[in-house]
Nucleic acid binder design. Sequence first.
DNA 1: GAACGTATTTGGATCGATCCAAAACGCTCA
DNA 2: TGAGCGTTTTGGATCGATCCAAATACGTTC
Lengths: 347, 347
Amino acid sequence: MPQSGKHVTLKDLAAHAGVSRSTVSLVLQESPLVARHTRERVMAAARALGYVYNRGAATLRSARTATIGVVVHDIANPFFGAMVAGIDETLQNADYVSLLASTGDSPARQERLVTRLREQRIDALLLCPAENTPDTLTDTMADWGLPCIEVMRHIGETPRGHYVGADIRTGLARAVAHLIHHGHRRIALLTGTGYSSADRERMMGYQQAMHEAGLAPDIRTGRNELTRRAGLERTLEIMNEPTPPTALICHNDLMALGALLALARLNITPGAECAVIGIDDSDEAALSEPALCSIATHPHAIGRAAAGLALACLAAPDNDPRRIVLETSLRIRASADHTLHRSRESS
Amino acid sequence: MPQSGKHVTLKDLAAHAGVSRSTVSLVLQESPLVARHTRERVMAAARALGYVYNRGAATLRSARTATIGVVVHDIANPFFGAMVAGIDETLQNADYVSLLASTGDSPARQERLVTRLREQRIDALLLCPAENTPDTLTDTMADWGLPCIEVMRHIGETPRGHYVGADIRTGLARAVAHLIHHGHRRIALLTGTGYSSADRERMMGYQQAMHEAGLAPDIRTGRNELTRRAGLERTLEIMNEPTPPTALICHNDLMALGALLALARLNITPGAECAVIGIDDSDEAALSEPALCSIATHPHAIGRAAAGLALACLAAPDNDPRRIVLETSLRIRASADHTLHRSRESS
DNA sequence: GAACGTATTTGGATCGATCCAAAACGCTCA
DNA sequence: TGAGCGTTTTGGATCGATCCAAATACGTTC
């Protein structure tokens, strides 16, 4: 055992097991070339001496750490909890590990975290980019030779690199059609600043659906806060207008749940007097009172697809950008399952 | 620029800037020994060549990566989002970065993640341990010489290493006193399996408060799931008993919010007919309908304290275990702010 | 026992960054 | 101009692990 404070190295294991450093290295790599009894001797030495592999040292000669960075913009959004579970489930089978970092939706902080992860020599990056992320980040990833999969949000107008997302547009078309079918004509979209790709995608899908139905779009952009509290506050404002919308499609479930809270405060019966639809179909959507109607984006499956794509890129490097867009579905629940009262729509 | 796929190294920067590798290294370390014009030349070379530092290589000679691992058991719990924000805020000023990993409350997965983080040579670990974590983990950290701060949960009966938590016992004493003052005599504690230190702490604090009030404790342990859905389901069961409690203290806000949903489904008026108190005082507590009464544990401050302790350990290594326990406070809100109807207590 | 083929192990160079004693440089003063 | 001193830069060794050609060991056959 080396003196206190020093790490156990291959050299120590080799001396303890009576083999060479190269043999130790082969054992740790689970090489089939090593005899079984030799392998056992080395593993016993590793256990006895409390050896911890040094991935940084290994990356000086081999290229991989078996580590994937996951960078998201709001760790408190339940979408990401589910997505990370999907990522980890997929990586586990490949003996990879994900390391998660939260940008707080700041491009500057994001740059710092991405750089720090690269310095630690992650093998690939799954990135839900902060709003206003500069286009140059895609180039930087390419320069680094770091496989990067943009997830749910992308950098720039269209993704130039790999992308995994959900078919929000079709989901919005279904939501708008559903609301129209239930008698709604004043349907508003409650979204963020309008600058993130997620915002723009929602706005465009919603606008297209409204135009096709011959209705006037009503897009409510606002501050870069997509939380329950923001949904509540903004819905309170909207409902105090002279002619408020009769239906709200919210950026995500958190905002939609906030909107439900606002309606309750205003004694507006959610569903019957004002419909609310969220996006994501979080676990909470089904539990709330009334149950929230939501466009299901399947975050767990998104996570699995993104991690799977990262592993595929690492297994067979090829620079063709891949795009995976999972289907969405409209989960119809009480918050948007009533035919609108006629008096409310006319007034 | 080296050929594609190869990283830019100190050697490349040195050639580009016309200085030695040692000078480049000193510049990157921001050593005051280097002349300003030399420093500028090197930094220009680094920008021009797109240099990325290799922290793994550096740790072969220097000891630090300026990276702290944060391992939690349920990333979807809003407590951790707030705690991580506090951690990151504190680390930013020290030019440290946190890398987060989620154990899903599995000791086996936790062991794997902790090992992987150590292999990446994190400088310290903030750990909210999985339930049933073996005592030996504390010894392993000590053997590794890795400063480890247990947060909110600890390993074993009492923390043997560093610990940061909240004074749950005092919070529970206040909650019980508050409920008694409002006429409640059948007060139940809804908790987890009873095996985690967080469970035990809650059970003991609650029991002590109930004994001191001369009341019979009613502890409801259950499965290892501390979610909104679990709170809802278990409350539905409890409320179907012949003589259900008139007040529920729940393991965390998520469960308490689930309990409120259950009461609403049963047409039991939350607050008036059955009081509900959560633990954590998440952002959602104040927004819910009725607003949730909760023991505030200040996760943001917990995160700040934990990160601060980690930095202090790194700055002045000393093996004396430190213990920081932040004060809690009872945030009184509608879910537990009514005097109990007399008929309900008597029946 | 020698020859041969296969299995297993080895040793020195390499990777990128840091360390630190020595070398080099620039300035001042006699 | 040379010596002395303080500032700045340098070069070779080191760190822990991998690589890969060569060496060694082993088992089988004649």
